[in-house]
Nucleic acid binder design. Structure first.
Length: 419
RNA sequence: GGAGGGUUCGCCUAGUGGCCGAUGGCGGCGGUCUUGAAAACCGCUAUGGGGCGCGAGCUUCAUCGUGGGUUCGAAUCCCACACCCUCCGCCA
């Protein structure tokens, strides 16, 4: 959430910043609700103070009790008004997105994002290249049909060489991040409402979440939730920062609103695995760490040999918690375009405020800043398959993955019984 | 799933309707003493919100697992729920 006290003090600056992402009207509604809440709070508190003063000391006599009963009734109705106003204020506050970073790209849509740079050679093929599904499906390395039979659309079996290569990719990235100071974590994938709100997936992303109603738990769409929740309500010592975590989880997304989008193959599925970076740092350091997360993502893409470009995402296309976001888009030869394979966001103090993660600094307790970024998902594997295929339909696996159990080539051996 | 025990201010703990925002100890911080340190002694030691003030600050409300209820008044009584521990059952 945003810093409401700061917003009261300089509403024009907040309104202007939020207007860049189309949230100026919501902000004004919030300020009005806040004003009302403060008025009602003052009134209720004054009554409560009077009641507390009256209930000190010896028990009151009968005529005094009649008086106090009236006061009690008055207080009760004042408190109802106050809590109604508070609920309205909280609901509005929960929907206000983070203040965008001045250097985040202008614009409201995906098309407004800025290309910062490109890397690598776009491959040219002497044959018609096949996408990952065409490469994998006929011989059983990627099986969407059986996935659909089991679980419905957008579920994939990855089998044999593809399974091993994918696992190697995650292990490679986890190792890479560990060598850069990240602590590897295997966190829970079921999380309660508090963590979902705290990370900003609720209330705005509710339709995209799987909810286990019987248990009041959500399936997380990213380990960001669990890594952000790991220090919920904690007071971090300054020497604990920066804290860098590398999580690995299976992730679940309903992909509501994505109907008809990326329906082919396993580019957009309901269940996928991911190595995620998550950083806690001091307020002054988050811009620098954002650049670092991007640099790590680029190093990984380069180690895999994937041609890519770096995008500065337009403010209107940011998730609510993000102040600024970079995407890396790899070249997909069959689609003939760059597609997102990783993403990293600076969420400044937005999640830390909601999750109540603070540190003891020079001026007392202050909220930390947090950042998140993709280490790797299977999308990198799809890019590998498309970019490094040969005419016979086999794929040369990047050498760096060999150390982690990947076969040198995908498609040389039979996938075995799954066929 | 069943039975029992528990949840209080960093940790441990006292507290069964008004004198409790809350006892005591540990830890931490400051001071006295000391060449320095330890010990001893003295003091301070939660968080969040609102109002006032340029500010140091003053003031007020909330918070004793969470949410409801009873009452003029709740850490304390009642109800529901959550979590933790022990035992039994079941299962990976």
């Amino acid at each position: 959430m945003i810093d409401l006290r700061a917003a009261r003090q300089d509403p024009d600056a907040f309104r202007a910043a939020l207007a860049r992402r189309g949230a100026a009207a919501d902000f004004d509604a919030l300020l009005a609700a806040d004003f009302r809440w403060r008025e009602l709070t003052e009134r209720a508190e004054a009554l409560r103070a009077e009641q507390r003063r009256s209930s000190k000391g010896a028990p009151p006599g009968p005529e005094r009790i009649a008086e106090l009963r009236r006061l009690s009734d008055e207080l009760a109705s004042a408190q109802v008004e106050q809590s109604d106003a508070e609920r309205e204020r909280q609901d509005l506050l929960a929907r206000i997105p983070n203040l965008p970073d001045p250097s985040a790209a202008d614009g409201m849509t995906e098309e407004d994002s800025q290309v910062l740079r490109t890397w690598g050679e776009i491959p040219s093929f002497a044959f018609v290249p096949r996408d990952a599904l065409d490469l994998g499906s006929p011989r059983g390395w990627i099986d969407m049909a059986r996935g659909a039979r089991l679980s419905g659309s957008r579920f994939a079996y990855r089998i044999g060489d593809v399974a091993l290569t994918e696992m190697a990719l995650y292990r490679f990235v986890l190792d890479f991040l560990a060598s850069r100071g990240f602590l590897p974590v295997l966190p829970p994938v079921l999380a309660g409402e508090r963590a979902m709100y705290g990370t900003g997936f609720l209330p705005t992303e509710e339709s995209n979440l799987y909810l286990l109603e019987r248990d009041g738990l959500y399936l997380t769409g990213t380990s960001e939730v669990a890594l952000a929740g790991i220090h919920m309500d904690e007071r971090l010592e300054e020497d604990q920062l920066p804290a860098l975590y590398a999580g690995f989880t299976t992730n679940f997304r309903r992909e509501a609103g994505a109907a008809g989008k990326d329906t082919r193959g396993m580019f957009r599925v309901h269940q996928f695995d991911k190595v995620e970076m998550y950083v806690y740092c001091r307020a002054g350091e988050s811009r620098e760490f954002h650049e670092r997360l991007l640099a790590y993502e680029e190093e990984i893409a380069q180690a895999l040999g994937l041609p890519y470009r770096v995008m500065n995402i337009a403010v209107g296309d940011l998730g609510a918690p993000a102040a600024k976001k970079y995407d890396i888009e790899a070249w997909f030869p069959v689609q003939g375009r760059y597609r997102e394979i990783t993403s990293c966001s600076n969420t400044t103090d937005y999640q830390a405020r909601r999750l109540n993660v603070r540190m003891r600094g020079e001026s007392g307790l202050e909220f930390v800043h947090t950042l998140n970024g993709t280490g790797a998902t299977a999308r990198a594997l799809l890019a590998i398959m498309e970019n490094f295929q040969d005419e016979g339909g086999t794929v040369a696996v990047p050498e760096v993955l060999g150390r982690f159990g990947a076969p040198g080539t995908i498609g040389r051996q039979s996938p075995g019984t799954a066929r």
